[in-house]
Amino acid sequence: MSTYISGGCKNGKSYYAQRVAKAGGAPLYYIATMIPHDAEDHARICRHRIEREGWDFETLECGLDILRCLEDADPKGSFLLDSVTALLSNEMFTPEGIRMDAPERVAEALETFIKRAPNTVLVSDYIFSDAMLYDELTEAYRRGLAAIDRRIARCCDNVIEVTCGQFIAHKGALPL
């Protein structure tokens, strides 16, 4: 079963996603999407690793080209991809420059990913309701993330919004 989870920052998305993935069986994979750039990133990754201790996750490092991580994994396993937001950021803002085709490529790759590994939980971030006027590049990123959200929501069994540690099923049912 595939589940798409979104919501605001620090509302309990990741912890819920871990529980849903864990309930999805074994082998259990955590797809680490963050590419560390500085000490703060390393500290965050370290904190997340400690949080996942004892959950029996095998970590797959995959910040780019998400289908790569299926090469060394059992597609019948349970996958947790946290987060779509980081994945898009890595694919869009590269050391070689800005790739405006990233949203389309990421959406395409994620669709294929879910077809090959149907037991996947994906976490995204709801960054769409603030009163800011952004520059065109930031706006392109927000538009791109929302386009991915909408497309992947169509092919996932469950679409869950997390707010204040509470869960709303917009499609399918609450897996837990």
């Binding site: 709801y126 769409f128 309701s129 927000r142 538009r143 929302a146 386009a147 909408r150």
Partner: peptide, 8 residues
Amino acid sequence: IGGSYQGK
């Protein structure tokens, strides 16, 4: 209603 780009 809804956030930006949600398909309204």
